[in-house]
């Protein structure tokens, strides 16, 4: 395996874990964590893309920005989680399914 293939394997693994978490976890905190893992997988993909195309500078800038934006999303997500715990008394997603139909 060369470097690129290792990176791609990493992408697949991380995104797989992230999506698995999003599809099967019922705990809101874990969902936020799964989102983070998903995005981290994408960041690895971006590194690989920079590597493959010889545009590491560009991909670095990109990655830095994504990390900042993604952190904001995580913060907002966690803030929502705190509020959910306060209002619903649980972090179970089952409780968050009142809007249907």
């Amino acid at each position: 395996m060369n470097d690129l293939e290792i990176l791609i394997a990493g992408v697949v693994a991380l995104m797989g874990v992230g999506l698995y978490g999003l599809l099967f976890t019922r705990n809101l905190i874990k969902v936020v964590v799964a989102l983070q893992i998903l995005v981290k997988g994408v960041l690895v993909a971006m590194t690989a893309a920079g590597e493959a195309s010889g545009q590491l500078n560009l991909s670095q800038t990109l990655i830095m920005t994504v990390i900042v934006a993604d952190t904001i999303v995580a913060v907002v997500g966690l803030a929502f989680a705190v509020q959910v715990k306060r209002l619903f008394g649980t972090l179970d997603l089952q409780a968050l399914s009142n809007l249907r139909g």
Binding site: L22, V31, L93, Q94, L96
Partner: peptide, 17 residues
């Protein structure tokens, strides 16, 4: 068809995937 709007987040993500 309204049954498809389950209100469950996991299901919603499944829609995307």
């Amino acid at each position: 068809l309204r049954a498809t709007q389950t209100g469950h987040l996991n299901w919603n993500v499944l829609g995307i995937v």
